[in-house]
Design a protein around this nucleic acid. Structure first.
Lengths: 220, 220
DNA sequence: AATATTTTTTAGATTTGTCTAAAAATAAAT
DNA sequence: ATTTATTTTTAGACAAATCTAAAAAATATT
């Protein structure tokens, strides 16, 4: 039995160590991620170690072991499938589903999540374009690049985002930039890294660096 | 903020006091319902009182106040909508959904449950034939009676069950007795209260008192 | 290398929900 | 109406997850 709280710590360790591939994670980093004190993290790490979910020596940092990693991937699978359900079936916006999925991902049932997966048609990506691990924990890879790296004259289909916060997603929606839309680069301005683009063959707009550095497209 | 545990106690009080309309509920009864000790119940009752969810004087029993009742009805709404979703959309059997709904009903979001309601087409009854309270907390009433009270020659459509445990529901499914099926009474045996019936115009079977006393039909 | 800074861990307390065992109140029975 | 039995509450303790403040270890700086 792994509690929701323990799962949150596992997720945190997974998320942090994902950024710096396979690196040891520090107590302070985790504390920030789960919004608690470093002392609480130390307590929890001891517990997760006795439960054999992490590799941990005091003062030396943590790493998920295979069991912990498997759990983290399952949580990611649950989270992303619930997000897909909320957007595809219930009509939530992609900027509204994170907190709900955060609750739903702790519902304990393999049968439920696998049936949900089938019901959704076994999607490979969630509403933000992030890959959904399958039952085996396998992620589908995809070649993608940042809008920033498109040259003038090139175009691509929006397939994902690098930033996931509500405000950024909402901002994108206002520009009609969403998964599946096409983006063509008309002109690039080195001065402030802003780019003039055409969205979905519709009107031309200027996008700033924050957008071009955080939106992934698949080049056409 | 009401915790999942507190919600479980509110549900318990609601369920017990529903049987004996508006009666005061005892500590021991609640302890049995939530599977804990009477001492723990007393502790929780104190807390629920400070949160102004119940009417409670020591040694005199408990009753939900309007706020507590509202919460209990909301929980029933959530539970039954999730059960409907699990059966109608994900393909679970009606005998498999209780425990999952017990988890899902604690997900905190009015928007979620109302969107789910719409997605399901605002069903008035759940997979067991129990009424689903609407957003206002209003239950749809229905005239129904136990199979037991049908006379020889009469028939009805199965609309609900009185017993809800997994084994009973599974047993009914084996007899092809499910919501929507028709039941015609062919012969009644006073000796052991067994009844010979025809299910859905198909084959004749004998049903025992346990079934006839726990299956509701709408007379045709 | 010695000192200063940052990070991490321990120590001790708190909250939530639980327990057992004993005491108090209520209800039942003779 | 007293005794007996049942129900309920208190008292004290425990596990989970958290906190603050202080100590210990590791890292960085001069």
């Amino acid at each position: 039995m792994i509690s929701a709280t323990e799962e949150d710590y596992i997720k945190a360790i997974f998320n942090i160590s994902r950024k710096i591939k396979n690196a040891m994670v520090g107590t302070n980093q985790i504390a920030k991620e789960v919004n608690t004190s470093p002392a609480s993290v130390t307590d929890m790490l001891k517990k997760l170690k006795t439960k054999d979910l992490i590799q941990y020596e005091k003062y030396k940092g943590v790493k998920l072991n295979p069991t912990g990693t498997k759990r983290a991937v399952l949580l990611l699978r649950r989270h992303r499938l619930w997000e897909s359900f909320l957007v595809e079936k219930l009509g939530f916006g992609w900027d509204e589903v994170h907190d709900l999925a955060e609750q739903l991902e702790h519902i304990e049932s393999d049968e439920l999540i696998n049936k949900l997966d089938d019901y959704l048609g076994n999607p490979k990506f969630d509403p933000h374009g992030d890959p959904i691990p399958d039952v085996q924990g396998i992620f589908t890879l995809r070649n993608q690049q940042l809008v920033q790296h498109l040259s003038v004259g090139e175009s691509g289909i929006v397939v994902g985002v690098k930033k996931h916060d509500k405000d950024f997603l909402h901002h994108l929606s206002q520009f009609k930039i969403e998964i599946g839309k096409s983006i063509s680069v008309l002109e690039k301005f080195a001065y402030d890294n802003s780019i003039s683009v055409k969205i979905d063959g519709q009107k031309d707009i200027m996008i700033g660096a924050i957008i071009s550095e955080n939106v992934f497209v698949k080049k056409l």
